[in-house]
Design a protein around this nucleic acid. Sequence first.
DNA 1: TTGCGTTATATTTTATTTTATATAACGCAA
DNA 2: TTGCGTTATATAAAATAAAATATAACGCAA
Lengths: 114, 114
Amino acid sequence: MSDPIFKLNGRVWIETGDEKVLGHGRVELLGRIQASGSIRQAALQMKMSYKQAWDMVNHMNEHFGQPLVVSHRGGKGGGKAVVTEYGVRVITRFHLLHQKLQEFLKENSTDLIL
Amino acid sequence: MSDPIFKLNGRVWIETGDEKVLGHGRVELLGRIQASGSIRQAALQMKMSYKQAWDMVNHMNEHFGQPLVVSHRGGKGGGKAVVTEYGVRVITRFHLLHQKLQEFLKENSTDLIL
DNA sequence: TTGCGTTATATTTTATTTTATATAACGCAA
DNA sequence: TTGCGTTATATAAAATAAAATATAACGCAA
């Protein structure tokens, strides 16, 4: 590789203790659950297994003080999943942090010559 | 988990194209190579395999315009690895970015109530 | 009451990643 | 010239992670 063009990138996430509980991927998952009303559909959209998605939802619900998603099985459509009001707030807050990080990355990319 | 304490954390890294070429771990590796003069010793200190460390060094040397580490086998001590002047500059620049990120995280943690 | 599609969970299989092992090349020092 | 400890590389084994499969529970609608 000769004469490469460097790009600064980064991520932020939320921890409790030393365990990662919320990041880029999980927030996207929450958003898709919110939009589709279904863990399965959200998983399909993100090309992940249902188990993987369910584990994420379960992990979040267990590590936040209150559930971000409530789910029901059976009924019309076979079941559903709903992002709670708290969950919506968490999504919004994270989006804001993400946006601020993008600004940070932009600012510090101006003189990015290694 | 009831009443969790949330902590904002994050990382920055350098990409060329869409490939990650330098991050937290690799900079630490470079620092330890610089201090010890040995890829093997640096790997041992970081509890990673020699192969893993060598692959990282090789990947960096291939993706930056010029080598960050030059290595020699044989001779006194069996061989050695030296971080180039360019490599030292890269380490320094990254440390600065890392430090700025820490400030960013601190600033945005003040009102971190989810 | 039967079927539907989803949630929820366990188990098995497959794929991927990591680690371990082996071996050659190397150049200095004894 | 022999031994040493490292770089460099390939291969095999082990450990993890991911994906696939199977199955029960559920409640509405037909």
